[in-house]
Nucleic acid binder design. Structure first.
Lengths: 212, 212
DNA sequence: TTTAGCAGACTAACCAGTCGGTTAATTTAG
DNA sequence: CTAAATTAACCGACTGGTTAGTCTGCTAAA
């Protein structure tokens, strides 16, 4: 049984403590104690408590940017891309819910320089969603009466909010939730014609009656 | 020119400071200074810094519960009730955005007893949304394949998230945003038949072409 | 020998809350 | 109505506890 490196142990412990108690309510002494490390160990691996917070932020946004680019490259129509982006984002909560919580809850407390770096990556993610919706409207798959920025932020809100309530032990699996969210969004944005395309039928949930 | 009472001035100042900097990054000394009061004035009006945080929380949740009950009583079909609830919720941001920010951002730091009180009211609001969706499915206006809890939380997420990005100076007015959100949700949840009812036509945005 | 990694006692700064005192309003007594 | 007494509202210097970060030193690997 080989022990994980100190740095990793500190990050993992801090992540869970920050999630539950908030950045300011968690002391370095507590992180150090619960991760089985020491003040010396902590400040050997991190310049400051702020740098630790930044590390947690960056690991998540880097991961999710990667996933979104992936969904974009694997599919060719806006409808498919949006569908996959939403599903992969929601399914990410299985592994990264604590990261997301800290990301959205504690970013206020990031130092100015750290905050700027994160903001850039965050903006890149936002722009990807805007483009997705814009392309969908441009090619006639999405309804043209829904404005790009508001629709995009609505989708973000719906998916991001999951961190506030999702529990692994809940009655719906993360995959089911992902499919429901994707269904809701596709119903909300697709034009009538696009939603009737047989190759897009897979986007929609089926009611029990239809299956019989 | 009569001055507002100390208590109000403290609440208003604290609200803005908490919103921008977070509860723990704002000291009582700073609140006192920027509101033109003093330590004595502060502790005369509040038992503790925690009680001030509670006051801010309670004023918002009480207001929004009221609005939701109102929307419920003024209309008689689930579709109309949901439509109005969403619109009144989003329009609330015009006045209460700082409250909402503090409500969702700093509730971690509420004392146990205070937190319990707020949790009860929060739960009442959640239950209202669940009932709304449930009744819509039961009477056949909403699609029966969308599960009540997930759909409800999706609607919450979409609307609540607004506090993260809404600016009064943005290109869309709060009323426009409210109408767009309501359109998206109605498209997502209504059955085909319900959405064709002429009395529900007002729920949907019209594209420029249709108006000519 | 050197140095990376870590341990833990120590410190300086910060901050929520206290306390003794002041002023202004309201109530009571004559 | 007037003076005295009481209370509400407020002021700001001070304190005691807390906490991020430092520093000296130890151990084991290179």
């Amino acid at each position: 049984m080989k022990k994980k490196p100190t740095k990793e142990r500190i990050i993992e412990t801090a992540l869970l403590l920050f999630e539950e108690n908030g950045f300011h309510a968690v002391t370095v002494d507590r992180i150090v104690k619960e991760s089985g490390s020491s003040k010396g160990g902590f400040y050997h691996n991190f310049k400051s408590k702020d740098e630790l917070l930044y590390t947690v932020h960056d690991s998540f946004i880097t991961y999710i940017l990667d996933k979104a680019e992936d969904a974009y490259n694997r599919y060719s129509t806006p409808a498919e891309r949006l569908y996959e982006t939403i599903r992969s984002f929601v399914m990410m909560f299985e592994l990264y819910r604590p990261h997301v919580t800290v990301f959205y809850q504690e970013s206020l407390y990031l130092n100015k320089e750290y905050f700027e770096t994160i903001k850039l990556k965050r903006r890149r993610y936002k722009n990807m969603m805007f483009s997705l919706v814009e392309e969908g409207i441009a090619c006639g798959e999405f309804r043209k009466e829904i404005p790009v920025p508001i629709t995009s932020m609505a989708i973000f809100g719906m998916t991001n909010w999951t961190y506030k309530w999702y529990k692994e032990t809940g009655q719906y699996s993360i995959k089911e939730i992902a499919n429901i969210y994707a269904d809701l969004v596709m119903n909300a944005v697709l034009t009538k014609e696009a939603s009737l395309k047989p190759e897009y039928a897979r986007f929609f949930l089926r009611s029990e009656l239809e299956t019989s």
